[in-house]
Nucleic acid binder design. Structure first.
Length: 768
DNA sequence: GCGGGTTCTCTTTTT
DNA sequence: GAGAACCCGC
């Protein structure tokens, strides 16, 4: 054992020599608070890996005392793999995982302390939304006003900032906000939602973090236990942490103060999930004796790509100063490709890959196609299939979101935790057993009225509902009881197989002989295989079904083992973070698509989209393409598209207009205008058509709201009134229109011209 | 309670 | 364009 260690140590020391001075500092400065600002392609994962190895070998730290938090399971798996190659099996005891998975694991042990069962269920966002819909219905509210998505994101935002429903309801600012949005019942929905989750023994994604905070706040002995255990805490992708996550890490590191955060503010792209870029910008304030290292040398990309990326990101105001540079070769300019339609865009991308692959002897896996939204993959896929190019899609509709998978999982969930309301509703009448919506409603109402547990009501169905449905429910309860016994006695795989068969689910699918039906059947088999693998894996100590469910609830499609065949990668820019490819296509570079129109509410939003653009750009090692289409099918409609404003923000020296342009439409129409400074191509000068009036002037500074800005109740807003908008500044109401249940106000703003705003969204201050 | 047809809604990113 | 919600007749 000692021999092995010293051999690895020797090995590691060789590796140390291969690091540049900054990387080495980041690895060797192990104690006290450290912030590593790691520019794109600066060898961040390598540094993190060696840092852990260094802790174990050079400093003699027990791997058991190291906690390493990442954002995706994939990143965690990658890190674990790399550490084992550098530091050997000893590193296995390091706690490594996503925030959600690590704290779910802790909560599984400690949950009873805060009143939850240890076999609590984790609700995914579909479950959450369904529960919200139920609550909105029960409260007899308009589900067009209280849309599940909007309500959930509001609640999620509150939880990520550790605002309880009580605080939420008592806060006058929140109240004013909700009233201005004409959603005054939001606080009550939050309260009921939380109550129902609790009764169902369930936590949503945000609760895993929220409740960890509660646990650490109310049970100092528990906090102390983990503080002692995690002597070294590391956080990767720190720019994407939200307040809830940040406070957990801060608490954990409070005793030993060995906290190391790694991140790049320029790659912060998860504000919609509550990530707060201020965490990284203000980290220094929390730790005055902070040691900061900047990794600025990019090892990944050509000089051209690094320059282009820098020219993009420098437009942002909110950022830490750094100077990313590379000693790599110049490389080619970025190719800008215009297509007439989205399908032509796909064709050009596919044929370019086909040619490049053959002339440069590249593999499919050297190419990636990145887009802003998942729905854009369709047109690209079609084109790739026509040329027989192998591709794989990362993300998109997840395996775990498929109906058949959720159905089987719901059976397993309900068996393990028979108060899980969402699981119950899913399976009680599937396959059909004559228990309709009316009976289900009666059961739920009975549980609510008598303040009884769902499972108790189901077992005593005769006392609450009559006739046929009651005896059907008896059979259902008997079946679940049988499942419970199986779960207790057998391992996850045996129990799950038995549940799949006995429930009739497998038969139901088997009888469907359509292609989709066959697919569904195979998917269920695949899930069972996954369970088998889980059981067979030596590393998993707890082989119960409950343990497996815990594990799987936090997996996403990105984490599933894909075939290792050589394939082109298609994914959203968000999923591409941390990856690299020789050639990258960023498709759909159209205004309103990228930057997304939904995002364009404020300067902060624009800056986040720009960071996303930066992330996309810096994935490429050798060659980068931007493509856009002049028309695109979206939601079944053919839209006219404007090229993205981002195209104009890239340094003109870095872009050339591609020869691969629209076959149907040659550039005559746009010959006069053009990308400022873009070089000419042999086939003509293709430019960017401008329509400035549809754009928010980027150069113009957005209004800063008055210090006492507070949205007014806009129910009685009328024409001629003066208002202040937090982003657009002062303006005068022109007219108010009612469209269905929506009210719209047309406002003439001092600096931004006339805008029509939906009153349920706009936060306006009425000036008396 | 069920099945089939139709209408409506949501179209941003993920743990 | 897809999936959920809704409606209607049996």
């Amino acid at each position: 054992m000692i021999l092995v260690s010293s051999f690895l140590l020797q090995n590691k020391m060789d590796y140390l020599d291969s690091l540049n001075p900054e990387q080495r500092l980041a690895v060797e400065h192990t104690d006290g608070p450290v912030m590593i600002i790691a520019g794109a392609g600066s060898g961040k994962t390598r540094v993190l890996t060696y840092r852990i190895a260094h802790l174990i070998f050079a400093k003699g730290v027990d791997a058991f005392n190291i906690l390493s938090l990442t954002f995706t399971n994939k990143a965690a798996a990658e890190m674990r793999h790399r550490i084992e190659t550098v530091a050997g099996l000893e590193a296995r005891n390091t706690w490594m995982g996503t925030f959600h998975s690590v704290f779910a694991k802790i909560l599984r042990v400690e949950a009873p302390k805060i009143g939850y069962p240890s076999n609590f269920t984790i609700y995914d966002s579909d479950d959450s939304k369904s529960l919200i819909r139920t609550i909105v219905k029960e409260m007899r509210l308009d589900d067009k006003v209280y849309k599940a998505n909007a309500v959930l994101s509001r609640i999620s935002g509150a939880k990520n900032r550790l605002i309880t429903w009580k605080v939420y309801q008592d806060d006058p600012f929140v109240k004013a906000d909700d009233e201005a949005a004409m959603k005054p019942k939001m606080g009550e929905i939050y309260q009921r939602y939380q109550d129902r989750l609790f009764k169902a023994g369930a936590m949503d994604f945000d609760d895993l973090l929220f409740n960890t905070n509660i646990l650490f706040r109310d049970h100092l002995d528990v906090l102390n236990k983990y503080q002692q255990r995690f002597r070294y805490v590391m956080v990767d992708e720190f720019q994407d942490t939200n307040l809830s996550q940040y406070l957990i890490t801060k608490k954990l590191a409070a005793v030993h103060q060995n906290i190391c955060v790694v991140g790049d503010d320029a790659q912060s792209i998860y504000a919609f999930r509550g990530a707060d870029i201020q965490n990284i910008l203000n980290f220094e304030k929390d730790y005055p004796d902070l040691f900061v290292v900047k990794l600025e040398q990019n090892y990944r990309s050509t000089k051209m790509i690094v320059d282009a990326a820098n020219s993009i990101i420098e437009k942002n105001k909110a950022q830490l100063k750094k100077n990313v540079w590379t000693s790599n070769g110049d490389g080619d300019q970025i190719e800008l490709v215009k297509a007439s339609t989205d399908s032509e865009e796909g064709r050009i991308v596919a044929s370019t890959i086909f040619e490049e692959r053959n002339t440069k002897k590249l593999n499919n896996s050297d190419f990636a196609i990145l887009y802003r939204t998942n729905s854009q993959s369709r047109a690209i896929e079609e084109a790739l299939r026509k040329l027989n190019l192998t591709y794989k899609i990362v993300g998109g509709l997840s395996f775990y979101q498929r109906k058949e998978i959720k159905d089987l999982m719901a059976y397993m969930r309900f068996t393990v935790n028979p108060v899980d309301e969402e699981a119950f509703k899913r399976i009680v009448n599937y396959p059909k057993r004559g228990i309709g919506d009316t009976s289900v409603d009666k059961i739920l109402v009975a549980a609510f009225d008598h303040d009884m547990q769902l499972w108790e009501v189901v077992q005593n169905a005769h006392s609450f509902i009559g006739g046929r449905a009651a005896s059907q429910l008896d059979d259902f309860a008997t079946m679940i009881k049988a499942f419970k016994i199986e779960v207790e006695r057998k391992d996850a795989f045996e129990a799950a197989s038995s549940i799949a068969k006995q429930s009739g689910l497998l038969r139901e699918l088997y009888e469907d002989k359509t292609i989709e039906g066959l697919n569904r059947y195979e998917n269920v088999q695949e899930l069972l295989n996954a369970i088998k693998e889980y059981v067979d894996n030596e590393e998993n100590e707890d082989k119960s079904l409950g343990a497996f469910l815990q594990e799987i609830a936090l997996l996403t499609d990105n984490d599933r083992d894909k075939d290792t065949t050589d394939a082109i990668t298609l994914m959203t820019i968000h999923s591409s973070k941390g990856l690299e490819f020789k050639q990258v296509f960023v498709v759909g570079m159209e205004e309103d698509l990228f930057p997304s129109q939904m995002m364009m509410q404020s300067r902060e939003d624009l800056e986040e989209e720009r960071r996303l653009f930066y992330v996309a750009t810096t994935r490429a090692m050798d060659k980068l393409y931007f493509t856009y289409a002049l028309t695109r099918y979206r939601y079944g409609r053919l839209l006219n598209c404007e090229p993205s404003r981002f195209l104009e923000e890239v340094s003109p020296d870095c872009i050339k207009v591609s020869k691969k342009v629209s076959s149907k439409e040659m550039p005559g129409a746009f010959r006069k205008e053009g990308v400022p400074g873009a070089s000419e191509s042999s086939s003509g000068y293709i430019g960017i058509k401008k329509k400035p009036e549809t754009r928010m002037p980027t150069a113009m500074k957005l209004h800063t709201p008055s210090p006492d800005f507070k949205p007014s109740n806009t129910n009685n807003l009328q024409a001629e009134q003066l208002v202040e908008h937090p982003k657009f500044g002062f303006g005068k109401v022109q007219k108010i229109e009612t469209e269905g249940i929506n009210r719209k106000a047309t406002i003439q703003f001092e600096h931004f011209g006339e805008k029509t705003l939906l009153l349920s969204f706009a936060k306006l201050r009425i000036i008396d």
